[in-house]
Amino acid sequence: MAGGMNKRGSYGPMAERVAAGRAPAPGAPPPAPAAAPPVRPCWVTDSRGRLPGLLLEWRQRPDGWHGRVVHPVEDDAHAWVVVEEWLPAGLLDPA
């Protein structure tokens, strides 16, 4: 039988192949980091005043452009909470 079950070829033993799949080889460059999402700092101005926020994305709606924003809001108990909401572009300014 050509090859047989013990033929390793240039791949090496199974244990080395499994280990190679889990960790980068010594001296190998680190893996490239995942692309950062296009998050941009912004100012949110509404009835509560002007607060910092993070703009996550834009979307055009029938009534105009809206931004999906994460920003702090003071609740009724005077504690700060973080909210995510869609706001009209008129309430957002670049930071």
Rank of each mutant, 00 (worst) to 15 (best):
A77K: 14
P72A: 06
A34D: 06
P30G: 03
L87G: 00
A19M: 14
A77E: 14
V69G: 00
A79M: 11
D46L: 03
A36Y: 06
V81M: 04
G9P: 05
W65S: 08
L54T: 07
R50H: 02
L54D: 09
P52L: 04
A32D: 15
V82S: 01
C42F: 00
M14F: 06
Q60M: 07
V73H: 01
P62H: 07
D75Y: 06
G21R: 12
L54P: 01
A25C: 10
P52T: 06
A35F: 04
H71D: 01
D46Q: 08
V82N: 02
E85R: 09
K7S: 11
P41R: 15
A23C: 08
V69R: 01
R50L: 04
A89I: 02
W86M: 02
A20S: 06
G64P: 06
R40C: 00
A34W: 07
P52M: 07
P24S: 12
N6C: 03
P41K: 11
E85L: 05
R8V: 05
V81H: 08
L51H: 05
E74K: 13
M14I: 12
P13D: 02
L55F: 00
G53D: 03
W80D: 03
R50P: 03
A34N: 12
P88R: 10
V73K: 02
A19S: 14
P29D: 05
W86D: 07
A20I: 01
A25M: 11
P31C: 06
E85G: 05
P41S: 14
V44T: 00
P26F: 09
